[in-house]
Simulated assay, not measured.
Amino acid sequence: MINLRHAAAAAFVVTGLLGTPAFAAAPDGYAGVVVKGSRISVTGHGNVSAPPDLMRLQAGVEIRRATAGEAFKAARSAAAKLTKILLGAGLAEKDLRTSELSLGPEYENYPKIIGYRATQGVEAVVRDLTQADKVIDAAAGLGEDARLNGIHFEISDQNAILVAARDAAFKDAIAKARQYAKLAGCRLGKIVSVSEEGGDVPGPIPYHGPMAVADKASISPGRQSVGVTVTLTYELK
């Protein structure tokens, strides 16, 4: 569920046309009279938070052998086994992709080569977070060749959270404009400009905690949030 939280701060600007003062002095301490044709600009803020519904697991294998050919062949074989294990844990083929492939020498005292190291990475997309622990445990079950390099949480429908934040910011700005217009003793006219700041959808949330999981439901995705600031300029009547 998306939660909306509106910030309380506001920007309030009243401007007259052609450099005419926005307010004229008035008796009895009254703040002033808005000059005909003046405008008001207000800033609204919208913040939306939602729990991620997708996890990306960065897994892989790492092999050391005496020759480059042996290391590469063993790494490819171990990666194929890891892929089979992840498919057996309930993931779809479309949610698995090779993310890394490397082969290189290892040195004792350069340039003396003592062996070769080969790695192959697999990115697994987990769309059902209730199965996250199961998938991680399955990958770790490959054995000493397995490497778990971290996980990232995401919101799959990122556009929805941005739309909701815009809605909240716009409503916040309208409410403030109505309040300030009333305080200024006038009525709102039409909106003459709209501008937006922020609105960047957050990137993946990394999690680098222990990968070998023993407790049930030990992975917590937390929440992601996005904030949008909207400035509306109205004509005043």
Rank of each mutant, 00 (worst) to 15 (best):
L54S: 10
Q131D: 11
L188H: 05
A71M: 04
A9Y: 08
T15D: 09
A175Y: 04
L232K: 01
G227Y: 02
A168H: 06
L236M: 11
V194D: 01
E197K: 09
L86R: 02
G46W: 02
R5H: 13
R117N: 02
L188P: 10
H208F: 14
V125I: 12
E100T: 09
S38I: 09
S41F: 06
K81V: 13
S220D: 15
T233N: 02
D215F: 06
L86W: 00
L82V: 12
L148G: 14
N3I: 11
K84P: 07
A169C: 10
D167Y: 07
L129K: 08
R56N: 13
D28M: 13
L232V: 13
Y30F: 11
K237P: 14
Q158Y: 13
G115K: 00
A140P: 06
T231C: 01
C186T: 15
G88F: 04
G209D: 00
K112Y: 07
L54V: 14
G115E: 00
A26M: 12
Q120W: 04
L57E: 12
I191R: 04
G121A: 01
G104T: 05
Q179F: 04
L148P: 13
S38E: 03
G199V: 13
V226Q: 06
L162C: 09
I114P: 03
A214T: 15
F153V: 10
V194S: 03
K134A: 15
F170D: 10
H6C: 09
P52E: 00
Y116D: 01
A146M: 09
L17Q: 15
L232Q: 05
T83V: 15
D128Y: 05
G16W: 07
Q179Y: 07
I161Q: 06
R147Q: 08
A118W: 01
Y110V: 14
E93H: 14
I161W: 00
G44L: 05
P51W: 01
Y116R: 02
V35H: 05
A169V: 11
I63Y: 03
P111S: 05
Y116K: 02
P204C: 08
P202A: 02
L57V: 15
